[in-house]
């Protein structure tokens, strides 16, 4: 379990993280979202015990990171931003070094090494020095290092950055596999990832926590939530028909692909009405979809309105 209470980090007069408070429990995979420079990495560094907070505190598995650093660090697997590792070492010797520092016994060391090497597909590069690895492999070595001692708490700063689509998929599956009995915090700029692995999202911008919700709740804040989108050859006629439906607030057409989206009035269900109206007019629809909401739009709204407030 991770508890961050009023975590604050100042650099001189600049506040990188401002009184951020949250708690993550076993079984939760928390996605940390925010624009560049929001303070995600800084928050993670404080929880991992690398930076001392200017104010507030962080606990990992009940251990205060400042007063019981060793216990907290033992319970933690941490992938720092950019996945730094000792470039002159081979992958194998690096992982063995980590196993040694983590105090794994010979038996569990062998088992854990086999496990993470298999999961992250590192078999082919074990004897290669880390300096000569491609970016994606370096990241995988960083991940392997973080999960090697099978820690109850994982903090991963942009774990899928630089991975190819297959590996992204693999790493997400890895996180999902581990999710059940661990506490996991990941930061990411890839919003699909939130759907794929997170069951909770925290949005921060300018060092301030702006939202703490499930991905579903965030999507529900989207303008697109419960909207209906469709494509048809008779765009103009369809637009007229949809505009005439009383529950529909507005109709928009994507200029790029002529996709029509009908937005409901607040709290209204329009899927049935749209279907009925189109059928009544005899409009042939190529595809039709009920939107759940768009995270990128919600993300923009949350973070930009914060910026506007900050400027005002």
């Amino acid at each position: 379990m991770i508890e961050a209470s009023a975590l604050t980090k100042r650099y001189g007069r600049f506040t990188a993280v401002n009184a951020v408070t949250f708690e993550v429990r076993v079984g939760q995979v928390l996605g940390f979202l925010g624009p560049n420079g929001a303070g995600k990495s800084t928050t993670m560094k404080m929880i991992a015990g690398f930076l001392s907070p200017t104010a507030g505190r962080a606990k990992v598995c009940g251990f205060d990171v400042e007063t019981h650093p060793i216990e907290a660090k033992k319970a933690l697997g941490y992938l720092p931003e950019g996945a730094p590792s000792y470039g002159e070492m081979t992958v194998r010797s690096f992982l063995e070094f980590i196993a040694g520092i983590r105090g794994l016994t010979a038996e569990s060391k062998r088992r854990r090494l086999d496990d993470v090497i298999g999961r992250l597909r590192l078999e082919g590069v074990l004897e290669q020095t880390i300096d000569t690895l491609s970016k994606g492999f370096k990241r995988r070595v960083g991940l392997a290092q973080a999960i090697l001692h099978d820690p109850p708490v994982l903090i991963l700063d942009e774990p899928t950055d630089g991975l190819d689509p297959n590996q992204k998929h693999e790493v997400r599956r890895l996180i999902n596999d581990m999710a059940e009995n661990k506490v996991i915090v990941i930061s990411t700029h890839i919003l699909e990832e939130v759907h794929a692995v997170c069951n909770r999202v925290v949005v921060i911008a300018g060092g301030t926590l702006l939202a703490d919700a499930t991905p579903g709740e965030l999507e529900a804040r989207s303008r697109y939530h419960m909207a209906v989108s469709l494509t048809t050859d008779e765009t103009a006629k369809a637009r007229e028909t949809l505009t005439a439906i009383p529950e529909v607030e507005t109709v928009e057409i994507d200029p790029q692909n002529q996709r029509i989206t009908a937005f409901p009035r607040k709290g209204q269900q329009i899927l049935m009405a749209v279907g009925d109206a189109l059928r009544a007019q005899g409009i042939a629809v190529r595809e039709l979809q009920l939107e759940t909401g768009r995270l990128d739009e919600v993300f923009r709204n949350i973070t930009q309105s914060h910026l506007r407030e900050a400027h005002a």
């Binding site: 560094k45 690398f50 060793i70 933690l76 730094p84 000792y86 105090g103």
Partner: peptide
């Protein structure tokens, strides 16, 4: 320079 200090100091060593 290489950032490994962050790795080193978040391992369970004083």
């Amino acid at each position: 320079k290489s950032g490994t200090i962050e790795l080193l100091l978040t391992l369970p060593v004083t």
